[in-house]
Computed example of a mutant assay.
Amino acid sequence: MRSTTTVRLTALSLLAAAALTGCAEATTGGSDDGGEGGDRQEVLIGYFPNITHATAIVAQEEGYFEDRLAEVDAEPGYQDFNSGTDAYQAVQDGSLAMSFIGPGPALTAFTQGPDSVRVVSGAASGGAALVVQDDITSLEDLRGERVATPSLGNTQDVAARAYLADEGFETDLEGGGDINIVPTDNPVAVNEFRDGNIAGAWVPEPWASILVAEGGQVLVDEADIWPETDGQFVTTHLLVNAEFLEENPDQVKAVLEATVAANDFIASDSDTARDEVGAAVTRLTDAPLEPEVLAEAWGNLEFTNDPIAASLEEDATDAAGVDLLEGLDDAPPVTDIYDLTLLNEVLAEAGEPEIETP
């Protein structure tokens, strides 16, 4: 049930990606010196070097991907992306086996080709907010003002437009209407906010915490408006090429063993995982996070194996309602995007609760 006093944001993790390397070929040469495994198939995994993709970062940093895939005579490769669009298109066309990705691009991929992709696991929940200047106390104060979102049609952009429409505010795709939504890269939005050129921004972490550190205040925390899911909503999940899933279930299962292990590590040693992820993000992007900002942003996220299907269904409704998701009427039910069979096998073997299949 949608709240009428707060905004439904779903975070799409965006931080400029940096040099994670990987080969788009399905198979790479292994050791030719008679070492273990010989030639191994490379499983190419995409993710963004951002804290909302901590599951993937921890799985790489701790060697979980490498260890689990070695057991099925495979090895991980990594590919960096600057946008969710590029990531989902690579998964769709099969040049990428899978990618950690936000809900918006996954929905677009599914509506374009319902048989091309599947979500096989969750990764992160939460971590999105509307942060405004300190003199803004209500949505009405935003009338006639400029509010940034990460990009036109991305998850926060859709959520902002849908929420404002519910609240009686008109917006349009050209930045007009009662409240002027201006798609802006997150680093640029920070500068615009600091200079007073925007009244607020709908952003995922760590950008929300960065804006608060710049003197802003949270007008809306999305976690407060999901009572039906106890404050959870999908931020990052794992999208897999459907053909790869069908032909290589052992490799997908090995990746899922790694992600479950990573989420267990995060849950059991959160501070160590946080610092490990912060260091990796800094190394990969050359954009260090202040320790206080990292701690605040980390505390607003939950890392989970559950893809939180109910929130994705609402995302689809929102996107269609503001004309930013073509093809939904012609696509199968959104729940058809999920295949949690292998995830539940992994969870059962680990003695952990299984996830109800939508």
Rank of each mutant, 00 (worst) to 15 (best):
T4Q: 10
R8E: 09
T10K: 06
A11W: 00
L15N: 09
A26V: 06
E36H: 11
G38D: 09
D39L: 05
V43Y: 03
N50H: 06
I51E: 06
T52Y: 03
A56E: 08
A70Y: 07
V91G: 08
G94A: 09
F100N: 01
A109P: 10
D115Y: 07
S116A: 15
G126H: 06
Q133F: 01
T137Q: 11
T137K: 10
S138D: 06
S138W: 03
L142W: 07
S151C: 09
L152N: 04
L152Q: 08
Q156W: 00
A160C: 07
R161W: 01
A165T: 07
G168K: 09
T171E: 01
T171W: 03
D172H: 04
I181Q: 00
I181C: 00
P183K: 04
N186E: 09
V188F: 06
V188N: 10
V190N: 10
D195G: 02
D195H: 11
A199G: 10
A199C: 07
I210K: 15
V212K: 12
A213L: 03
L219V: 06
A223W: 00
A223K: 14
D224M: 05
V234W: 00
T235C: 14
E243L: 02
E246G: 13
E247P: 02
V252Q: 09
K253A: 11
A261Q: 14
N263V: 10
D269I: 01
V277Y: 02
A280K: 11
T282L: 04
A295G: 08
N300I: 00
N305G: 11
N305M: 08
P307K: 11
A310Q: 15
G321N: 10
D323P: 01
E326K: 09
A348F: 03
P353Q: 00
E354R: 12
